[in-house]
Nucleic acid binder design. Structure first.
Lengths: 215, 215
DNA sequence: GATTGTGAACGGATTCACAGCA
DNA sequence: TGCTGTGAATCCGTTCACAATC
């Protein structure tokens, strides 16, 4: 029964969640694959097919119950439980990311009943002038304590926002500490064991590939 | 002869450029598809196939001349000419992006002979307290002047770093002003004419999809 | 009548495997 | 011999189309 779920499908699930939360906010009771498709820019067939990887959430002739679908998606993405995120690198980019993550609806969506439990609970840096301080209640540790704190806080995901030359060392440490997933903002290809999932966001690569289309 | 080039291929080209610049830095004269594959984490066959979309850059039995390949890739990505980039939204994220773009090797790689000509030349915001000021020589304009400045500076790419609720309006303005490509950091799906290329970087979506793998 | 869930068809991207050339 | 360039084969994700169901 447990078919392997393609990565592309997993990447679309949060988008469906965002869509269904919007329908919920607008107090729709049900939503069709057609409506979800319009909202996300995908085909209705794709929406339905994607869902089948995880189960049968709809009713034929009717559509999907918004509340039920929302809950299912939250469970699939595990944001109905607590997922702790660590942030390594508290320079310019790191601070901007922390600001965004702590303020935005990612970490808290209170007007809407159920706050996300995807939480940035610790930051790491090497700069002694900020190690030991707090950012909006989030403690900043020295990177040397990464492994220790990852275990203590049960951190599962690490966001890497350090300079390129340090990124691989941090990634290796993360892998050793048992981190499950890494979101890498440094402009280097990371080498980690297969069991660690890596997503890479690279401003340089994005801009350079867009430059191709400026003809 | 001019076959259509798949988007996935275009997205890999900057990675090849980064690889070949590294080989150049280490003073290799030639590089094989095998070596490029190891560096990038792709298969040699894929590297070769990707290149064929743009021409024949190698010598059979030998490999690719590093200097020549580098030049070819820079021309393909149009970073041998000037490409002007504008940044809309100069809050926390926008400032961090500006900092990164202005300092990093994206915009300038002088130790290496030929600086990239992908340059952030203007920022836009609505905050009157920063409009009219400079950031490291980059002027900050009011968003109302977007179209005017885009034409004046010949801006081809816009980076959107505004709050979600304003992103669509900005994107529409960009499209009207003739911008060729948009890099969107706001957590919304943008609706623009097909001739405008959009890449989307969404921290929320990335983290939520990674959360799936934390089981 | 409407809409889901899904097997089958399709299409596009990756990999294979080898001919051709240095 | 070594490595590129590429047609053929394969793999994988998307779309189609329709039976099942409300």
């Amino acid at each position: 029964m447990m078919k392997r779920i393609p990565d592309v499908v997993v990447r679309r699930m949060p988008l469906y969640l965002r869509a269904v939360e919007d329908f919920a906010r607008r107090e729709h009771e049900v939503v069709s694959s057609q409506e979800l498709g319009d909202w996300t820019g995908l085909t209705p067939a794709q929406v339905r097919k994607d869902f089948t990887f995880f189960g049968e959430f709809g009713k034929q002739g009717i559509g999907y119950n918004v509340k039920f679908l929302r809950q299912q998606l939250r469970e699939i993405l595990r944001i109905s439980e607590n997922v702790h995120v660590g942030l390594v690198g508290f320079g310019n980019l790191g601070r901007a990311l922390a600001h965004y993550l702590i303020d935005s609806h990612v970490t808290d969506n209170p007007e809407f009943g159920s706050p996300d439990k995807l939480r940035v609970t610790a930051a790491f840096d090497v700069d002694e002038s900020i190690v030991g301080t707090d950012y909006r209640g989030m403690p900043i540790f020295h990177v040397d304590r990464l492994s220790e704190i990852v275990h203590e806080h049960g951190i599962k995901i690490i966001v890497i926002a350090v300079p390129a030359r340090h990124a691989q060392a941090v990634a290796t440490k993360c892998a050793e500490a048992g981190v499950k997933a890494i979101l890498n903002f440094a402009p280097v290809t990371l080498n980690v064991p297969d069991e660690v999932k890596v997503h890479h966001t690279d401003l340089t690569l994005e801009l350079q590939s867009l430059a191709f289309y400026t003809a």
